[in-house]
């Protein structure tokens, strides 16, 4: 309390937050690549980054915009296959391929976003299932997309940007991290802008928004476009950096639900929620596997473990929906507020 006289309270809090983020970023860029083993990068960090980005994209649409979508995996697939085909057929560089893939996903996102102009809630969610099934069907049916590969599974091209070879785990991690950080900053700008305010207005009361002159149609379609573009880039990371193969199988309805669960558990309409939710979804199965092998010493086989994982995850989601609808983000917010109060007192 004695400090409050010469230290104004409000401005430093903002700086503290920015400093904290900067420190986190510094650790992620400078420390993690040095100390993280290839296993940690490949089994935890890469899927975490890809799913965080997908969650971020979906959160823009569903959390901020109120448009429920079950088509996330479809847009991931579109991004991955588009990048692959742009590189294969036009011979463009990887960065350009990513931009084009994002644009392709955005265009397809707008098409499947059109029903949102008429449908709401559950009905919209069901109509986005059309995207999920259609895209997966098209990618499986037309072997052109996977360059007529017999198995439908193609190896992703080597990760090179300019003359930089990023194919090692560290390189793939930094590649994914760069994309995720850049896009997260963009999303931060979007949700803070007037357009972001429009998005929330449309979510909270569409009729009122329309009557007072918020461009509802445009807001929804732009949300679908940007969200799909981001999820498309997440698909590129998933296929290029994490799996290192491009195949339709991984982008199924399960994945779409997984991305939806990430933002529900992490916190709807928050940026950090996507990261917190993705961390839980990625780390939880690994923890469970470790615990079971430690506690039961191999008595539980992998199939049973997978089942247990699903049951527990389902319970976690139900728990969150009942006890903390605002997700991990709200829990973290309360924890930091308490910590701050303790620090100030001490």
């Amino acid at each position: 309390m004695s400090l409050s006289a010469d230290v104004p309270v409000a401005p430093p809090r903002v700086n503290l937050r920015a400093l904290g983020l900067l420190a986190l970023l510094a650790v992620a860029v400078l420390v993690v690549p040095v100390i993280a083993s290839p296993y940690v990068i490949e089994a935890i960090l890469l899927p975490f980054l890809a799913l965080s980005l997908a969650g971020l994209g979906l959160n823009l649409l569903t959390g901020y915009g109120g448009q429920v979508s079950l088509g996330s995996a479809a847009f991931m697939a579109v991004g991955a296959f588009a990048a692959y085909n742009f590189q294969l057929r036009l011979g463009v560089s990887l960065p350009l391929a990513i931009v084009l893939a994002a644009a392709t996903a955005a265009a397809i996102g707008v098409v499947f976003g059109l029903p949102s102009l008429r449908l709401r809630g559950f009905y919209l969610a069901v109509s986005t299932l059309a995207a999920q099934f259609f895209v997966q069907w098209a990618l499986t049916k037309f072997s052109w997309f996977s360059n007529d590969s017999a198995s439908g599974v193609v190896a992703a091209p080597r990760l090179t940007v300019a003359s930089l070879d990023l194919d090692a785990p560290q390189g793939r991690y930094l590649f994914a991290l760069t994309l995720v950080v850049g896009i997260t900053f963009l999303v931060h700008r979007i949700v803070g802008s007037r357009a972001g305010v429009n998005l929330i207005a449309v979510r909270d009361d569409e009729t009122a928004a329309k009557v007072i002159g918020v461009p509802v149609l445009r807001t929804k379609l732009v949300a679908f476009a940007i969200s799909s573009a981001i999820i498309g880039v997440a698909g590129v990371i998933w296929a290029y950096a994490y799996l290192r193969t491009v195949e339709p199988a991984g982008f199924n309805l399960d994945r779409s639900f997984q991305v939806l669960f990430i933002i529900i558990i992490g916190g709807l309409a928050t940026i950090r929620g996507a990261f917190l939710g993705a961390a839980l979804i990625v780390v939880f199965p690994l923890l469970l596997a470790r615990t079971s092998s430690f506690a039961f010493e191999g008595l539980v086989d992998a199939g049973v473990l997978k089942l247990v994982e699903r049951v527990v995850l389902g319970l976690v989601i139900i728990l969150f929906l009942i006890a903390e609808p605002n997700g991990l983000s709200a829990i973290l917010g309360r924890a930091t507020a308490r910590l701050r109060a303790v620090l100030r007192r001490g």
Partner: peptide
């Protein structure tokens, strides 16, 4: 009103047009 927005953001929405 839009419960997820501040009073200022709610009012400013009236200028979106």
């Amino acid at each position: 009103l839009f419960p997820g927005l501040t009073a200022a953001q709610n009012i400013a929405s009236g200028l979106a047009f």
